[in-house]
Design a protein around this nucleic acid. Structure first.
Lengths: 185, 185
DNA sequence: ACACTAACAGAATGGCTGTTCCTTTTGTAG
DNA sequence: CTACAAAAGGAACAGCCATTCTGTTAGTGT
């Protein structure tokens, strides 16, 4: 084959990454072998190495994917014109948690303590998500609680911090609650 | 040597476990080889296997040790006759966090998503710690806020839950903040 | 439609690592 | 103090797994 068109290439990359995420959720980052991923994705080792430099690179991509998907959910809320308050916001975030992705997310935290590249991804995604929470809470303070924008910005910071913390804790609980068995119909 | 006296045997076990914890904090649970642990502990492979059935067994012991040490800190507070309020309690817990142990703790979470044995340890320790927090908050409600014991017991539950969540989030931040370098003099 | 070249399959490899085995050492009981 | 047996040392082993390599296939630009 000649060089694949960019769309196709990206498609293959996500196909591999998604298979990897499924494997990671099932067996963990390190206990997942390339062979597992080839089996899950239906591709071969050679093919995987044509798209990712090595396993670490693939893990990074998987981490980015999982974390990004979680962050995206937030974008919608902040933009709406009836922003939910902190409690409601937290409830919705928690309701949107997917157990499999929660597991990979928590595994990612563990890996981040050791691997600087993963650490940067996690920190970056966390900061970004907290910023979105901040926007969301500020919008609520202004539109619903009728605070001054300047004051709202200040007040929103610790609230966003707390919501983030409670959300992460819930993510951990979800990850621990569903050890390895779920056959969601 | 004949069978070591129980005290000596336990000493060796903790010597190995502590070396393992140091290695885990530095390189992660899976990236730490038995060779690393022999180097860190000054013992040999044969010796390690005389005290632990296998590596998984050693990881379990290390997890227990780290989590137990964190839980122990709490015991003191609950027993004192001037129990700290939730905010003060959280501050003290956070102040007592050791970065190296935080890293191993977070790694343990990641492992728990995959390994049922580790999962049980983490869940057990978390429950135990939350129960201690509950006792502590209840003592505060009764002794300082002058609530009725029955009412205090009820009110303490969600508060303990929140303190636990915020503590765990802080643990995560600490683990991420200190990637691998600290040469505390 | 053709040719070119990168994607793909899958076997081969080389290194690493958990575990075991055998020897030597040494703590303990009598 | 002696003898015994378990513990410590460390080399050897076996299996796994990331990565590479070789040939084959099939998209893509012309």
């Amino acid at each position: 084959m000649p060089r694949l068109t960019d769309a196709r290439k990206e498609l293959r990359r996500t196909q591999i990454a998604e298979a990897a995420v499924r494997c990671f959720g099932r067996n963990g980052l390190e206990r997942t072998s390339i062979a597992d991923i080839t089996a899950e994705s239906g591709l071969s080792a050679g093919s995987i190495y044509a798209h990712y430099r090595n396993k670490a690179d693939l893990v990074r991509a998987a981490a980015r994917e999982v974390l990004a998907r979680r962050a995206d959910v937030l974008g919608e809320y902040a933009a709406g014109d009836a922003p939910p308050g902190p409690d409601e916001l937290l409830s919705r975030l928690i309701a949107a948690i997917d157990p499999a992705e929660a597991r990979v997310g928590v595994q990612t935290w563990g890996e981040a303590t050791t691997d600087p590249a993963i650490r940067d991804i996690v920190v970056d995604m966390t900061d970004r998500m907290r910023a979105m929470l901040h926007d969301c809470v500020m919008a609520w303070l202004v539109k619903v609680e009728h605070h001054e924008p300047a004051e709202a910005r200040e007040r929103a910071t610790p609230i966003a911090h707390r919501v983030m913390a409670l959300y992460q804790a819930e993510l951990l609980y979800t990850a621990l609650r569903s050890p390895t068995e779920e056959t969601a119909s």
